[in-house]
Amino acid sequence: MSTPPMPTTGLAMVRTLGLVAAVCGALVVAAYQGTLAAVEANRRQALERAVLQTVPGAVRMRAFVATQAGIVPAEGAPAAAGERFYAAYDARGRLLGIAAEAAAHGYAGEVRVLYAYDPAREAITGLTVVAHKETPGIGDKVMHDTAFQANFRALDARLNAQRTALANPIRVVRHGAKRAPWEIDAIAGATVTSRAVGKAVNASAQRLLPLLAAHLEALRQDAGKDGT
């Protein structure tokens, strides 16, 4: 059974490794090809579910990228070319609002949210926490706390006269101290996480909304195209 160890030639090693790598490569490619369709469908579905949940009444959505030059559909646009967002439409193809992802550092890690923006009312109209690592029982209240969620039913997000930034930056205030429509009332005891949500939404809105403002009409027309 056991042959005395013989020095292996370099060629044999290369041959073995090459062969194994080829077999394994084929295995990986086959698995990738086999699952690609299902994976993509899953991705789309998860995102769509989140967007439709955040924009009330929406039944269909489409991804776009907003750049200085204009708005282009996300399919085919190079990644990281601009601000990505999702336009949500109702059954008749009317633009109901847009949704975008935002993220900021919370108490224990990144808090990622998806917020809805209604161009007609120039306000943020909904918010879903997509992912977080906050303390269960305290920070994770941002997911379901109804009083906190109420902040995002009509959060003022008007642009300034030059349309370069928000007229009033969105900010988080201490629990019970909300006075202006662009302020977010923090959850008592979960101020840090509340602040992270506000900071994320503000940063994203400051970047995205000015880009969006000039091209809203194009977005509305795209709805028709999408509907056919």
Binding site: A31, T35, A38, V39, N42, R43, Q45, A46
Partner: peptide, 8 residues
């Protein structure tokens, strides 16, 4: 890949 295809 299999898990991605199964449930995201």
């Amino acid at each position: 890949y299999l898990i991605q295809a199964l449930s995201l």
